[in-house]
């Protein structure tokens, strides 16, 4: 059994695939020393006799149950990260969870809700390795009363071309081996924080919500959004909005009223960094 400590949630991992343990160790070894209880037990196991040997498949288990179908063995490390996301999204109702990246500078958070393919993770990895603090790549974890956002100790999940791009821009960063041919294409994780740096992070207020969209042919274009549009888009990106109900409504309302709201189209991350740093963080 191996402890995976993401700061705010702790997991106990057992895996039939040794490789998964070594990947998890390379990402989380520095955080796993604390003697605390875990929130979730997760397992990667071979479920079927046949599928252990022919086109091998691996199943993810959250404690006693498997919430989704088995996937090809080659994707095992990615399955672990997705499964951990599932555990949090399916059990955490004391905080608002929004499918969004969170980047922080000078104690101010910008959240980036986005659909797959928007370039969100490339943006997060690059900025996270260029002077911003990455509070999350996938999930903004927000206190319901204060609307402050919490840091979580997780790597950034990169797909396809962005793996090579980030490797080129940040050769010093730590990358997990690439899982080939997952549902999302090729996948690798990059470490954007070390545990020491993470421990110094505090929860911070959200000052902006930015919907990013990568467009190869478009130089940085910024659209200011109405509060109504912002509210609608942000609430649709919340994982547990339907369960939290009125509480979630009020928290999203608080975020929208205290944030500037933008959609950006971009083809150059330096321009994005300059815009965020100068115009939003100020």
């Amino acid at each position: 059994m191996q402890i995976i400590d993401t700061g705010i949630y702790r997991f106990a991992l057992t895996s039939d695939v040794k490789h998964v343990h070594s990947v998890a160790k390379s990402l989380y070894a520095d955080s796993s020393e604390r003697d605390l209880p875990v929130d979730f037990k997760v397992r990667l196991v071979f479920d079927s006799l046949v599928r252990r040997f022919i086109k091998p498949q691996i199943s993810f288990y959250a404690d006693q149950h498997s919430p989704f179908k088995p996937l090809p063995l080659s994707q095992a490390p990615a399955v672990l990260e997705w499964g951990m996301n599932w555990c949090v999204a399916a059990h955490e109702y004391s905080k608002l969870l929004i499918h969004a990246a969170v980047l922080v500078k000078n104690g101010k958070a910008i959240i980036f809700p986005a659909l797959p393919g928007s370039g969100k993770s490339t943006l997060t990895a690059h900025l996270g390795l260029s002077g911003w603090e990455t509070y999350s790549d996938e999930m903004a974890i927000i206190d319901i009363d204060t609307a402050m956002v919490n840091p979580v100790y997780r790597p950034v999940c990169l797909k396809n071309n962005s793996i090579d791009l980030i490797k080129k821009w940040h050769p010093e960063a730590f990358f997990t081996p690439t899982c080939v041919d997952t549902q999302k294409g090729d996948v690798a994780h990059v470490k954007v924080l070390d545990w020491h740096r993470y421990q110094n992070l505090q929860k911070v207020p959200i000052v902006a919500v930015v919907f990013p969209k990568y467009a190869a042919e478009t130089e940085l274009t910024i659209y200011s959004l109405s509060q109504l549009y912002g509210f609608n888009s942000l609430s649709k990106n919340a994982f547990n909005y339907n369960v939290l109900g009125a509480t979630a409504f009020n928290t999203v309302d608080k975020i929208i009223k205290s944030s500037s709201l933008f959609e950006i189209q971009y083809n150059n991350l330096k321009d994005v960094d300059a815009f965020l740093t100068e115009d939003i963080i100020g």
Partner: peptide, 14 residues
């Protein structure tokens, strides 16, 4: 063959 082979009910990986 694995219990999901004939079972359409479980969602695919999110």
């Amino acid at each position: 063959v694995g219990k999901h082979h004939f079972d359409p009910k479980l969602p695919d990986n999110p």
